Amino acid sequence: MKNILFIVGSLREGSFNKQMATAAEQALAGKATVSYLDWKDVPVFSQDLEVPTPAPVAAVREAIQAADAIWIFSPVYNFSIPGSVKNLLDWASRALDLSDTTGASALQDKVSTVSLVANGGHEQAAEVYRNLMPFIRTKFVDQITTSRVNDSAWVDGAFVPSEEVLADLNKQAEALLEALN
């Protein structure tokens, strides 16, 4: 079975994107194993911190390298990707051997995809990911699932994906697995 690493772009307890990831996990049930990246301790990127590699960054790189694919579940902040997610991707996209800064990164040729949960700006954020992910040398599966946050979630904290969103997650899971074959 293939190993899919989920990166939840919101570190908030009860994150709607984490809840979307749980729905995607169901779409992969019996087809792939899923793990979640712990990246809350990754520092803000600075070349001054690259050597020696900070332990949280080394752990992130190892988790990415051990996975067959990554699936990012991202909020949309100001019609773009969250700065924290961009920071994580900046660290992960740096060359593993800094004596050759054009060399392979942890993300090198990694199959990737993205899903977005937000109340607006999906198209703009999706376009940022469509440009960024191939640039950082991932094999991007452009089958992006998007969802608005259901109104009741703002009161009770429970994100409820629509049947259409669940169908889209299933299509995205199949496209991701197909890209791995």
Rank of each mutant, 00 (worst) to 15 (best):
N3C: 08
I4L: 00
I4E: 00
I7D: 02
I7S: 06
L11P: 11
F16G: 09
K18G: 15
Q19P: 05
E25C: 02
A27H: 07
K40W: 12
D41L: 11
Q47N: 14
D48M: 04
L49T: 02
E50M: 07
E50C: 05
V51M: 12
P52S: 02
P54R: 04
A55P: 09
P56A: 09
P56M: 09
R61G: 06
E62K: 03
A63T: 01
A63C: 03
A67C: 05
A67R: 02
A69M: 04
Y77K: 11
F79R: 15
G83M: 03
G83I: 05
S84H: 12
S84C: 14
V85A: 14
K86C: 15
A95V: 05
L96Q: 07
L96W: 13
D97M: 06
S99D: 15
G103M: 06
A104D: 14
A104G: 12
Q108H: 11
K110V: 01
V111I: 06
T113E: 01
V114W: 14
S115R: 06
A118D: 15
A118H: 12
G121F: 08
H122D: 04
E123T: 14
Q124L: 09
E127Y: 11
R130N: 06
M133T: 04
M133Y: 11
P134R: 00
I136Q: 03
R137Q: 01
F140V: 07
V141M: 02
V141P: 05
D142N: 13
I144Q: 08
I144A: 06
T145C: 05
S147D: 04
V149S: 05
W154H: 15
G157D: 01
A158P: 09
A158Q: 14
F159I: 12
E164L: 10
V165S: 00
A167L: 08
A167G: 12
A167N: 10
A167M: 10
A167W: 10
N170D: 15
K171D: 03
L177Q: 01
A179S: 06
L180T: 01
L180P: 03
